[in-house]
Design a protein around this nucleic acid. Structure first.
Lengths: 207, 207
DNA sequence: ATCGTCGGCAAGCAGCACTTTCATTTTCCC
DNA sequence: GGGAAAATGAAAGTGCTGCTTGCCGACGAT
């Protein structure tokens, strides 16, 4: 079994190499890469690499673009993301980008090995086993969710200031019930769980 | 040699334990902890622990407060920070907080072993070897409202991610009631009306 | 020993947030 | 004209938020 291990942290790579050598009985070969460019070069140079354990956050390329590049360079590679992030949206996005597996770094070594085996069987493996948001649609506009209506944007503009539904209703001359409905639609569109997350996201995206 | 290894990433701990067992000839004993509280408990339970390899960013306690707590719990412990961050100001601050060593995770295993040996001799060891800013004066916290307690800052750090009280309680291992009380205190201290405003303010202030 | 601060837990309650369902009206496009 | 989307409103229900009050223990300073 030929494994690509891609992580910019040499300490982590050294450690995981030893873990793999410890837990994989035989026939193991580990190829290392410290960034996405090296990882892509490695899989191009050696198509026998069966599985990639890829950190999400490495220098030189944005995480999901790097994943995409890997997938394109080696369509048959079993991609497993190994990441410090356990954010369900990261997990969702990694799977949508083509990863067959996602292993949070708080997982145990045995979980990782189990994940490798599962993924090599062609099945999906995710740790932590969280409820994932639905598959994100292809983003029409990466900065602004295109599907917010004009009125929703009005409401979001006030929500991001931390105003309550009642205050928003008064300021926009609406019934509070209507504001609630807009907020529900906004949360769904933005893929967040509550107004606080929506406010933070809106601030980030400059909405 | 008894080593405390504190990192919330089990994969990293497993790997580094194997690295240590591989490179330290004999007499090695490794104690693991997944967060600062466990780390403090470990050094209290076993004063023979000579050196701690401590990740900066672990859940449950702010990084430097956690370092401070460790230093107070075990004044003779040789503290070595092992962190993904290679930011000179983090390095500076760790040293100012009492760490004798700082090892970035991109360092090699051999560099880490060298660091351990250096620190056990009482000398400072820093990788990457960067120019450090001068020692920071006692924190004036011009950006941070001075009256937030350490625990309130923990809670605020999670609240600003849009987490619910229940989630915060679970993540910090508290009763939800306790989280509510912290949130109430936070809102009063920050002079805001609701958690959304607090989250926005915290993001702005980089809390 | 006392006091102040901090952290933790609990109960109770009012009000808010969010979801779901139903409905109507308006506007725009085919 | 018909259909779809958007805007608006109502109601019911569940769960969350925030506040108030009370209690306890630990720790450090006086």
């Amino acid at each position: 079994m030929k494994v690509l291990l891609a992580d910019d942290h040499a300490l982590f790579r050294d450690g995981i190499r030893l873990v793999l050598e410890d837990l994989v009985p035989e026939g193991l070969e580990v190829v290392e890469a410290c960034d996405f460019l090296q990882a892509v070069a490695a899989v191009r140079a050696d198509p026998r690499i069966e599985i990639g354990l890829i950190d999400l956050h490495m220098p030189g390329m944005e995480s999901f673009a790097g994943l995409e590049a890997l997938r394109r360079a080696a369509p048959d590679l079993h991609l497993v993301v190994v990441s410090a992030s356990e954010d369900p949206s990261d997990i969702r996005r990694a799977l949508d980008t083509g990863a067959l597996g996602y292993i949070g770094k708080t997982s145990s070594s045995n979980a990782m090995i189990e994940g490798i085996r599962t993924v090599l069987l062609g099945e999906t493996f995710v740790r932590p086993a969280v409820d994932l948001p639905p598959t994100l649609p292809a983003p029409a506009d990466e900065q602004t969710p295109a599907r917010l209506t004009a009125r929703q944007r009005d409401v979001l503009g006030m929500l991001r200031l931390g105003k309550s539904n009642k205050e928003i209703a008064r300021d926009l001359d609406l019934a509070e019930i209507t504001v609630k409905l807009h907020v529900t639609a906004i949360l769904r569109t933005l893929g967040v769980e509550n107004r606080t997350q929506a406010a933070i996201l809106a601030a980030k995206l400059g909405l």
